[in-house]
Design a protein around this nucleic acid. Structure first.
Lengths: 332, 332
DNA sequence: ACAGTCTTTGCAATCGATTTCAAAAAAAGC
DNA sequence: GCTTTTTTTGAAATCGATTGCAAAGACTGT
């Protein structure tokens, strides 16, 4: 003798419409197995009673959740290690692209995704696939993932031996473009600014150094943050060595840190020193002076990441993609 | 005669351990109903075989998903209506707070959440509760939601007649703090910059105007973007009227837009004109000159939002909370 | 040794949908 | 009118866990 236990179930709708549960299920899926007349009646009743299919039950029965995990390196706030605004931009674009395909987004931090391991995320988190933002030296882990048949794509740096689908901008090209620009400005003392061990940034560095030809000074910073770059640059400027007249930073955030230091030490940009960033993050254009930078098309990136992942989920393997980049010349 | 169909099920583990399925389930939940010896054995076997409980099945059986929807107004990229970096900051903090409580985050855009209606999100998206970032004039809708018993909390502006749990910073206080500062700087021609119809921003405006006393010029902008503010301010400066000597913008992004315009028209900040923003978004401190702004503590906000939501899910109603704000004086 | 407790365990029901398969109803063919 | 085909429908199995309840086993006390 149980009563309306909260929201309506499919059985309730079936009863109200005078049909069976399977028929309701089919009607809601717009299946051709149900006559148009019945379909309309059921849909109307379902609508009136505010019925929606229970996602948990649906997920269990179809072995599929229409949900994609996006793994992003969220900041541990105490450490103030902010993930770059660029990642937010990318996330937003991925979310949009997924929404278009009626997929939901499960947002996972590195840590939460990692405990238990990526290979169990499908069952454990109830997702159909994974988008990983930034590979951060877990190449081997990803190879294993791919071998295990987990559907995933990675945003990160290209590498020849990738057995999985990795998408990233053409970092070496980006570096070369910057070198070209500095050369055309007749700069002499080029510096690259960025942390070690970050594959994407190292590729930018390499492309830059090779195209520049003569020696490039390397200023190493501990992480990708504004403060770290600013501090490193201040120290460098105070060292007594001749200041650089062209600085290429591995990301916009770092470029802004460097700019802040240069300004503080009275070095005029762009007169005495040119500065280039990477990403074309939203802040770049708002910055004063507006930042010259290498653009990464996050909209395109999001769309392709999603498209490839869907393809992989459907069983077709997808090859890595290299996105074109271009230099956006602004005020630095 | 079926064989290992992919990943192991709980029954498989039970068989391997020589126990029944319920016992495995209990062991995995560390239930006291299972002897320690058996528990250890089962855990070990599960670990060795890489078994993880199937989330979909678990969700269905316990009527609970341990997943929270966070609804954020993502940019439709074509329109370039970027949601403020402040929201990202808040999102990151919410995600962290949820992770601590072992809750997963389902990221929803306004649109995707809205089709079908918030009231059906629980069943439809399979979440236990909702965190809404920004109320954007949907007060009535939220009242209905609350009445329907949907567990949710809102980040937004306070209002006396809220029947739901809303959390926000003390906007009027923020406005007053800015007015005080401008007064102590002996400013004369105060201006408020922001869009109409945005409750939080209107509260900031009101607090500011009331504390300022004499007339406050209002410069209206169509949206919260950098460009809109910049454009509006440029037009205003070119109008021939006397330029303001103190500008309070409804958000940091808008403040930066205004600053860009002031600089372009040769008005020195902070010499000729003071500027205050709101949010203390990450960019504020990186800006040149560093932005004076009203701080909103996103870390605290995230923690409290989550705490209250959990409380509501467990059946205890939660009252609105007003977060303290303070003025961070920097270079503008 | 026997009734009474307490600890472990397993059977079977359940969560709410989807899908296979067979049956009923309707339409078509001759 | 009676078979054959096609269109609609529903009964029952299934997805993979969790949990109420009953029962088996281990312990206690007398």
């Amino acid at each position: 003798m149980k009563k309306n236990t909260g929201p309506k179930k499919m059985d309730d709708i079936a009863r109200l419409a005078g049909v069976s549960k399977p028929t309701v299920s089919r009607a809601l899926q717009d299946s051709p197995l149900v006559s148009d007349e019945t379909k309309q009646r059921i849909l109307e009743i379902a609508r009136r009673h505010g019925y929606v299919v229970n996602r948990s039950a649906q997920n269990l029965r179809r072995q599929r959740t229409d949900t994609i995990a996006v793994v992003i390196d969220f900041p541990h706030l105490p450490e103030n290690r902010l993930s770059d605004p660029f990642h937010f931009e990318l996330l937003a674009n991925i979310a949009n692209a997924l929404a278009v395909r009626q997929q939901d987004v499960l947002l996972c931090s590195e840590q939460s995704a990692h405990q238990g391991g990526f290979e169990h995320m499908l069952a454990n988190k109830g997702v159909d696939g994974i988008i990983l933002l930034g590979q951060a030296g877990r190449h081997e882990e990803f190879r294993a993932l791919a071998k295990a048949g987990v559907p995933f794509v990675v945003w990160g740096a290209h590498r020849a031996d990738a057995s999985y689908c990795i998408l990233g901008s053409d970092n070496p090209l980006g570096g070369r473009l910057v070198a070209q620009r500095f050369r055309s400005l007749k700069r002499k003392r080029a510096m690259f600014l960025g942390p070690r061990g970050h594959l994407e940034i190292e590729q930018r560095h390499r492309g830059f150094a090779e195209a520049w030809g003569t020696a490039v000074e390397e200023l190493e910073v501990p992480d990708l943050s504004f403060v770290a770059s600013r501090t490193a640059m201040l120290n460098r400027l105070d060292s007594g060595k001749a200041a650089p007249d062209a600085v290429f930073a591995g990301s916009d955030t770092m470029a802004m840190g460097a700019l802040s230091a240069l300004r503080e030490r009275g070095i005029a940009v762009p007169e005495d020193c040119s500065v280039c960033g990477y990403d074309d993050s939203p802040a770049a254009v708002h910055h004063a002076p507006a930042l010259t930078t290498v653009r990464q098309d996050t909209r395109l990136a999001g769309a392709i990441l999603v498209e490839r992942l869907m393809q992989i989920i459907q069983g077709t393997p997808a090859a890595p993609v290299l996105l074109p980049t271009d230099l956006v010349v602004r005020g630095t």
